[in-house]
Amino acid sequence: MTAGQPSLRERRRTETTTSIAEAALDLAIANGWDAVTVDEIAARAGISRRTFFNYFATKDEALFSNAVPWSEQNLATFTSSDGPVVDALELLFVARTSAEKHDRERSLQVMRLVESSPELLPGLLGRVAQGEKALAEAVVARDGVDEFTAQAIAAIAGAMARVSGMGWLAGLQPDPVTATRAAWSALRSLTS
């Protein structure tokens, strides 16, 4: 293993996490979220119920495990960068978006699932809030601003992510990376 590469254990943990999340979504799309059980998710992911709970506390947590992910590497790159915070934030969001797999139909299925199962909304919003909190902490570490300012910056950045994602899903942008850059360009047009 070379520096910067995840260990075999980390890769297997990531693979299992992804497998569980995909199983949860597949079952929810096929059967409706209320009908999905932890046992079914575990069976579909090829793991035991006990292993499921080593990864997630609830089935809702498994469903949204990939919502607003921040890699430690991306946040470290952000906090060690210099220059205007808006430039660093754009680079952070482009890096995250570039590293993700993009499947428009699957993303639309998730949206439809949340619309048809409103009890999922608090879990999704909780994940978004966790992502914004982590980003606010990184902004404080990078720029030394007060907590309120950092939270405002993180919320604005989160809005840019939502706008870019919705723009891509609606077909207003050809791909998520282009949509991300376009959203940040729109923000800059307000401040210039």
Rank of each mutant, 00 (worst) to 15 (best):
M1N: 09
L8D: 13
R9I: 04
R9G: 02
R9H: 04
R12Q: 06
E15R: 07
E15F: 04
T16D: 04
T16S: 08
T16V: 15
T17W: 04
I20K: 05
A21I: 01
E22V: 12
A23W: 04
A24W: 05
L27S: 04
A28P: 11
A28G: 15
I29D: 05
I29P: 01
I29L: 13
A30G: 10
N31R: 14
G32E: 09
G32D: 08
G32Q: 07
T37Q: 11
V38W: 14
V38T: 15
A42R: 12
A42S: 15
A43S: 15
A43T: 09
G46P: 11
G46V: 08
R49C: 07
R49Q: 11
T51E: 12
T51G: 03
T51R: 11
F53P: 09
Y55L: 08
T58N: 08
T58E: 14
T58R: 14
T58Q: 09
D60P: 02
D60R: 12
S65G: 11
N66K: 02
P69I: 13
W70Y: 11
L75C: 00
L75T: 00
T79Y: 02
T79W: 02
T79I: 15
S80L: 04
S81T: 05
D82Y: 03
G83I: 09
P84E: 13
V86Q: 09
A88S: 15
L91E: 01
L91M: 00
F93T: 06
F93Y: 12
F93K: 01
V94L: 00
A95P: 02
A95G: 05
A99H: 00
E100W: 06
H102G: 06
R104F: 10
E105M: 10
R106Q: 14
R106T: 03
L108T: 02
L108A: 02
V110M: 14
V110I: 06
L113P: 15
L113H: 15
S116M: 10
E119P: 00
E119N: 00
L120N: 06
P122A: 05
P122D: 03
G123Y: 07
G126H: 07
G126M: 04
V128H: 03
Q130G: 13
K133A: 13
A134S: 11
A134N: 02
A134Q: 11
L135F: 03
L135S: 05
E137P: 10
A138H: 07
V140H: 06
A141Y: 00
D143C: 07
G144C: 08
G144M: 09
D146I: 00
E147C: 01
T149P: 00
A150R: 10
Q151K: 15
I153Y: 12
A155H: 09
I156E: 03
G158F: 11
G158N: 03
A161K: 14
R162A: 13
R162S: 13
V163L: 12
V163M: 05
V163A: 10
S164W: 08
S164N: 06
G165D: 05
G165S: 12
M166E: 05
W168E: 09
A170N: 07
L172T: 13
Q173P: 01
Q173K: 07
Q173S: 14
Q173D: 11
D175C: 09
P176Y: 08
V177N: 00
T178Y: 07
A179I: 04
R181L: 03
A182E: 11
A183F: 02
W184Q: 08
A186P: 03
